[in-house]
Simulated assay, not measured.
Amino acid sequence: MQQISLVEDDPALRDALALGLINRGYSVRTFADGESALEEVSDSITDILILDLMLPRISGIDVCRGIRTRYGTLPIIMLTARGEDSLMVEGLEAGADDYIVKPCAPRVIDARIQAVLRRGGVDKATTRNRVEEFAGLTVDHDGFVVRRGATELPLTATEMRLFLTLVEHRGAVLSRQQLLERVWGYDHLGDSRVVDATMQRLRSKVERDPRNPELLTTVRGFGYRCDIA
């Protein structure tokens, strides 16, 4: 049974979401504020964190940063209210894997949870099943690991799948919608800001100079391309 940690300060919404997720087969732990989440959430008791952005005292943004720093690969989905676009982007930049706009039905959260968790595994059908070296990096497709020298880069599962997707289609330009479909599993028109924010984090980890990327380049007005010499 997958373990969900849910952080939401509104008691009625927290109880409704928890009950809906329990009815869909999850085990759910709830937290009313960021302090308790930071104290108790760990990757040993949590498969995925669902985190409201608007929390009292410690913001959801700070909770996201704290959890991401401690547990680099723990999947995080943000809950945002309509009209919180700037906060949503900030949350993605802080390390969230995805976001859901409230109000939302449990089946919607369930679908997003499963999409995020699928990113944590290796899709043998779309990887090259080998270790490659380029741009000072060692990419282990089967091991789902990227290293610079002997140091493993702290990529989240979503960042890794974005990176491998671009590597697998090296030289080709992939639109933001194509990346949403292949990495996030969205089969509808999604929010391209998810792609842009994740790309920004990915570049900060794999590029020698993230401000002047040479490996993961932007094709303006369309999408991104992996340039491997």
Rank of each mutant, 00 (worst) to 15 (best):
N23A: 14
I109L: 15
H141T: 13
E8Q: 09
G34V: 00
S5Q: 06
E207P: 11
L153F: 07
V7Y: 00
V145E: 03
T156H: 05
E132A: 13
L19E: 14
L51Y: 04
T80P: 05
E159S: 08
H188C: 08
P11S: 07
L6P: 15
L51K: 02
L155C: 06
A157V: 08
M199Q: 08
R220G: 06
D187H: 15
L6F: 02
G34F: 00
L202R: 06
A172F: 09
G171D: 09
A115N: 15
G60L: 07
D97W: 04
E181F: 03
P103R: 09
L153R: 08
S192G: 09
G91E: 07
G121I: 06
L21Y: 02
L202V: 01
A125T: 13
A229G: 15
I228K: 08
G83L: 11
K102M: 08
D209C: 06
M78W: 05
L55T: 03
R161E: 14
L153E: 10
D9T: 12
E181T: 06
V173I: 05
P75S: 00
L180G: 00
A16P: 09
L117D: 04
E181N: 06
V41N: 02
V206C: 09
L87F: 05
R147Q: 09
T165P: 15
G20K: 04
L179S: 00
R24E: 06
S42W: 07
T138P: 03
I45H: 00
R128G: 14
R29A: 00
T165F: 10
R112M: 10
I100K: 04
D52C: 01
R170N: 12
G121P: 06
A12E: 11
E133C: 11
D47C: 12
F31P: 03
D10V: 14
T198D: 01
G171Y: 03
I76V: 14
P11L: 07
R161S: 08
L13D: 09
D123G: 05
R29D: 11
Y71A: 00
F144N: 02
Y186A: 04
L179I: 05
D9F: 10
G143E: 03
R147M: 13
N212Y: 13
C226H: 07
V206E: 03
R128P: 15
G60M: 04
L137I: 13
R148G: 14
R68E: 05
D10F: 12
R225Y: 05
Y26H: 10
V139H: 06
A94M: 04
M54I: 13
I48T: 10
I50T: 07
R118N: 10
